[in-house]
Design a protein around this nucleic acid. Structure first.
Lengths: 114, 114
DNA sequence: ATTAAATATTTGTTAAATCGAATATGCGAT
DNA sequence: ATCGCATATTCGATTTAACAAATATTTAAT
């Protein structure tokens, strides 16, 4: 993992929030991220694709949903950076996590989304 | 320290190399960084000014020279990121450090530079 | 007061990143 | 086959970032 590519990936607020949410939650699908971030679908999808192409994320399709998690082979300095940043920015992310939980607890949902 | 501003600062190769060299050497002046990076003066100066304005560096003028070091109040997650990245990228920086030592050992120099 | 060295800033240009809107694709259910 | 939902991609426009070249500023030395 090239450090410049890595930090470029974290240099956009939407991408950083995606990464921290995924670091926190292990695995999230696009619609969960949309709900957490309150951002439009093409925007989230575009940034996730960019993170995948840069080697920070991997995706897994399950039915209609695509789940993203951190690339399993990230070097330790990259994992440490994400972990430290997450811990320091929990309050920064709390609103997003609340949105995510609210969506997950909706009585009318069958799976993670809809 | 806003994480997006911080990572934007690290997202450019010249700035990242400046930061890692300074993290390694504690304090460096502009001409030392120029020699280490083999980059033109306005380019180095411009990026250093940006890092200062973003709150990552502080400067100290001593005679004709301006020395830059890490801002003393950086949060720990930021320091950890720089330290971890430096340790992982020492080989990446070795060429620059060699250039720096070569300059410092020139018999015709009176001070750090010229 | 002049000169030279170190550093900073301005200017104009070019390249890169981001975005919203629209459209396309993939999958499951009927 | 077709409909609806989740996701991806394209397009055009706008903004932002980086650069080289030229010029300005600051300081020390004479």
């Amino acid at each position: 993992m090239n450090p410049t590519i890595f930090f470029k990936a974290l240099a956009d607020e939407t991408r950083l929030r995606c990464l921290l949410l995924i670091t926190h939650s292990d695995e999230l699908c696009v619609c969960e991220l949309m709900a957490a971030l309150e951002e439009a679908q093409p925007k989230v999808s575009r940034h996730l694709a960019q993170l995948r192409k840069s080697g920070l994320l991997v995706d897994r399709r399950q039915g209609q949903w695509v789940y993203y998690r951190l690339h399993p082979d990230l070097p330790s300095w990259a994992n440490t950076t994400l972990q430290e940043t997450l811990e320091a920015q929990i309050s920064w992310l709390e609103q997003n996590l609340t949105q995510l939980e609210r969506m997950k607890n909706r009585p009318d949902r069958l799976t993670a989304c809809n």
